[in-house]
């Protein structure tokens, strides 16, 4: 049963820049969860991955989500695992936060370990302006949006 064997993919030399653009609130539709799963799967391919949260997408990172009484899986805590998957760049658009009365303190803490700095824990979330996102977006090979 060869499909039961976990496979390591050798993708050296074909690193591309992938941006996952999140614009939907987390629990009202399936988009945010589907995107998160796509991101976790894509992490197996050792690409240059960044995530952008803008518009209602910033609500995906809101801390303190408790889904018990709506009987849904609480995937808010899964964002904290992104650092383990070597995803180190979560860009959150400042204008979208401000329009919703939110600041970075309202967001889940996501950290990664920096290999080049003695594995020091560093914050993965960076609040950036719309203009900075525009620049980042143009640098990408692939942008996946939901």
């Amino acid at each position: 049963m060869s499909d039961d064997i976990e496979t390591e993919f050798e993708t050296e030399g074909v690193e591309k820049k992938f941006m996952f653009l999140n614009r939907k609130a987390p629990y009202g539709t399936i988009y945010a969860l589907e995107m998160l799963e796509t991101v976790l799967i894509s992490a197996a391919f050792d690409q240059d991955v960044s995530l952008v949260f803008m518009d209602d997408g910033v609500y995906q990172l809101k801390k303190g989500c408790d889904t018990k009484s709506v009987n849904m899986k609480n995937f808010s805590s899964t964002y904290k695992a992104l650092g383990d998957y070597d995803i180190q760049k979560l860009y959150v658009e400042r204008e979208s936060l401000e329009a919703r009365g939110l600041t970075v303190d309202d967001l889940t803490e996501v950290v990664y370990e920096d290999e080049d700095d003695d594995w020091a824990e560093k914050p993965a979330i960076r609040v950036v302006s719309r203009d900075e996102i525009a620049v980042l977006m143009e640098e990408q090979d692939v942008v996946i949006s939901a």
Partner: peptide
């Protein structure tokens, strides 16, 4: 602290506005 706050505050004078607690909790 959203652009809708003023509209809600104005509407409340005539209309009862409710929000479902479990859906607030789910969204933190």
């Amino acid at each position: 602290n959203t652009p809708f706050e003023a509209k809600v505050t104005e509407a409340i004078k005539d209309v009862k506005i409710c929000v479902l607690g479990p859906d607030l909790e789910a969204r933190g």
